[in-house]
């Protein structure tokens, strides 16, 4: 059904943006982490998004072909990748993780960059929420049709 597919598309956008916000928060929280289970400092992570057409049943596919109109396109998180930029070296000889020259390998997280990404992610989330509400409003208007 068209209305439900509009809702799922908006929800897919909201969940993808939430995933982005989660990853960004993780980056900010670990901006000073010098120890990880894999060894070395924490490395910045990023969400990879991809567009996917809704899973269609045979009938839907047939109908889409018939009308030459494909249905809505959802967004999906296809993976979380590590940023391979080198760690930032900071001179801190008293730090237990400092190397012989006194430099500590700090995570390659730039807090300003993360804040900018956080803002775009939350704006995109709001946009998806607005699209969701619009679809809901339209469905409700249609349901009111039969009444007086």
């Amino acid at each position: 059904m068209s209305f439900l597919s509009a809702l799922t598309v908006s929800v897919s956008g909201m969940s993808a943006q939430r995933q982005r916000v989660n990853t960004i928060s993780e980056n900010i929280a670990n901006a000073q982490t010098t120890r990880t289970p894999q060894g070395g400092p924490y490395r910045r992570r990023e969400v990879i998004l991809a567009a996917v057409s809704n899973d269609r049943t045979f009938e839907q596919e047939l109908r889409a072909q018939d009308r030459s109109l494909s249905t809505a396109t959802e967004v999906k998180v296809v993976g979380i990748v590590q940023d391979n930029r080198p760690p930032i070296l900071r001179y801190e000889p008293g730090h237990p993780d400092a190397n012989v020259e006194g430099y500590v390998e700090m995570p390659n997280v730039k807090v300003i960059e993360e804040m900018v990404n956080l803002m775009t992610a939350s704006r995109s989330y709001e946009a998806n929420a607005a699209a969701f509400n619009a679809a809901k409003g339209m469905a409700q208007a249609a349901l009111e049709l039969g009444r007086g």
Binding site: S2, F3, S5, A6, V9, S10, S12, G13, A16, Q17, R20, L49, A50, A51, L69, T71, A72, T73, E74, V75, T120, A121, S124, A127, N128, A130, A131, F132, A134, A135, M138, A142
Partner: peptide, 24 residues
């Protein structure tokens, strides 16, 4: 008109959902 508007909403919602998808 209602049918087309519903379909158009699908398309627009897809655009908004894919606002950060590379190459979309």
């Amino acid at each position: 008109s209602l049918n087309f508007r519903t379909q158009r909403h699908d398309v627009l919602a897809s655009n908004i959902a894919n606002i950060d998808t590379p190459g979309y």
